[in-house]
Design a protein around this nucleic acid. Structure first.
Lengths: 204, 204
DNA sequence: CGCCGATGATGACGTTTGTCATCGAGAACT
DNA sequence: AGTTCTCGATGACAAACGTCATCATCGGCG
């Protein structure tokens, strides 16, 4: 018997996960041996089944796909990770690559690609969606300092400055300064536009 | 031979669409006879193939799932529509029902359900996800007047009032009044929080 | 060591918002 | 015919916000 590639599939959307699992299982050399509905289960299931490749949705409850990839490089070094996502943001790609992810695909890619990417990364290769790669290079690195990104993230709910200051344990004035800096760097007219821009580029 | 239920499947995410198509095709009494990557193609393909049931993703380019359903009730009255979506917002469910949609499911529902719902709506029945239905009833109707919703939508980018006023062809003062009304109705501290709330409930 | 950048804070200043009262035109309902 | 509601607008006022100058501490780096 030929050895099959053992796959973990993690996605919180049952419909997509089971459909994808069936599709991958149709390939002779691929076998989905574990499924998970959130990031925590993904890590434990991957370790338990000692999978070869983990196919991870980016947005999942508890731990997102990138966090899972980070955990797995520690806890299951032989495992290669592929991220699939609905929203291809440049920043996400960068963070994924930094976390040791070997494959990165938007869900709009065709079905045959996924199986081929699973094989590629299993053989030690890498594959990122070409269009996304171009965007990531064009977008450049995040100009935001860590704290600026933190504060901007807290501003994302639309809460007033005082609320943000409380949650960040900062003085309101400091919060305004950080937001002002972020707005300048992002060419935004106000913090809410800054949030929108940072989100679009995957910087928060 | 038993007559199969003829299905159109519309979703812009290739990966999901082809996986779902394979899965539905595995059922003896179901046959996916058409696929579409956006709303416009969905309408023409459904009409061309005279499908029995249209399975539509809610968020698609050009026309969203609800708009497609509206077109189809006109152009292909015999066709029953099922909407599937990643983000189950109460307002979307209401609009879908008003558009004549017979089935409404989040993508987190299990795979067996979808096939069963397709059969149910084909037989003239209805099926909405129970949890979503409860949310929709609890959330009530949108308290926003049409113009308030319009202005709130324009405010969603985070642009300053003057920009919104320009795009809405309104005086800046009027825009502020509408936004103020919307904020009061939604219990928001500012327009950006109002946008977040209205989005979450599917009112814009 | 000296310099720089990130962090954190303060105060002042002008601008943008949010609130409210008020007005008028048109549509719809009683 | 009168009331009510939406739509649209104006002006005034207070609060929130964005900008800037300035200061202090700390860590890293040449």
């Amino acid at each position: 018997m030929s050895t099959q590639i053992r796959i973990l599939l993690a996605d919180d959307e049952h419909l997509i996960r089971t459909a994808l699992a069936q599709m991958l299982d149709l390939e002779d050399d691929l076998s989905v041996v574990a499924e998970a509905v959130d990031g925590e289960h993904a890590v434990t299931a991957a370790v338990k089944h000692a999978v070869d490749v983990a196919v991870l949705d980016l947005q999942m409850p508890k731990l997102d796909g990138i966090a899972v990839a980070e955990q797995l490089t520690e806890q299951l070094p032989g495992c290669r990770c592929v991220i699939i996502t609905s929203h291809g943001r440049p920043g996400h790609l960068k963070r994924a690559l930094a976390a040791g992810v070997r494959g990165f695909l938007p869900k709009t890619t065709s079905a045959v690609i996924l199986a081929s990417v699973v094989r590629t990364v299993h053989d030690g290769g890498r594959h990122v969606d070409p269009e996304l790669a171009a965007e990531a290079i064009a977008a450049g690195d995040s100009p935001l300092t860590p704290r600026e990104a933190d504060v901007l993230e807290l501003a994302a709910t639309g809460a007033p400055i005082d609320d943000i200051a409380d949650r960040a344990a900062l003085s309101p004035g400091t919060v305004r300064n950080y937001l002002s800096n972020a707005m300048t760097k992002l060419n935004a007219a106000n913090r809410h536009e800054a949030v929108a821009i940072a989100r679009r580029l995957g910087w928060i």
